[in-house]
Amino acid sequence: MVRLFGPLVGLFFAVALLWSFGNGAYTAITEPAPVTAEHEFHLHPKELDLASNGAFGRFDKQQLQRGFQVYKEVCATCHSLKQIAFRDLKAIGYSDAEVKAIAKQWATKATTFNPVTGDRGERDNIASDRIPTVYYAGQGVPPDLSLMTKARHDGGAYVYSLLTGYQEQPAELLKKFPDSKTPDGLHYNPYFANLNLAMPAPITTDGQVTYSDGTKASVDQMSKDVSAFLVWTAEPKLDKRKQTGWAVLGFLLMATVLAYLAKKNVWADKH
């Protein structure tokens, strides 16, 4: 039975696939898939050399603090960072008192709700609070940035490329795809998946942020720093993970060598 019906079923699927293949091939020849502007002009992220890159890389806390400052003074107007609590900032080198001060002075206040009166109000943030959600009424939907660098391929490099990638739409593009002119209110950026995004270039002038550690706040430096910071927000346990990883691999390597020798011992008389 199996040998009778088996080949029949096999041929059934094969013929159906051949039919799909033939139709597909015919369509591919008669109506080749149109080439799109995204396909031709989208760029892969630039290289970004961060201290945390690689198996031995560690976060540069000074840079993370600078990146946090850029987030606070530039990005936080529109973008939330809701997976991060103020207390988490201790991990990038702030003291308890500094964290408390940062929380207290944060522009967006924590919301309160009085269950007796039903009143909603505001209070200063405290260290154990998450960074409050930002509500944005303008055009576009600014995504939460906590996990941004894990939610995009080449996360850190992507953020850096996007921040530094704003430019005029190339004339070549408009010549080839006249319909693809960047719509009003959007901004051309070849590192963005469909080339046009609602966010205008956020970091535009040198010295937009004044770094307390004396680093020169060039556009490139600020973009790098905030990318580094967002790599940290997405994976705050990165350093610990790699550290643990080396210890575990070292132990396993020794254990495996011993297991190999033991296996050879046991099998010595059987080959």
Binding site: A55, T244, G245, V248, L253, T256, A259, W267
Partner: peptide, 20 residues
Amino acid sequence: AKDGFGLGVFLLIYCAVLFF
């Protein structure tokens, strides 16, 4: 003994992915 060695090799690869 042979499976023990195999497990070691497996764990090395698995942990390399897990941690890095």
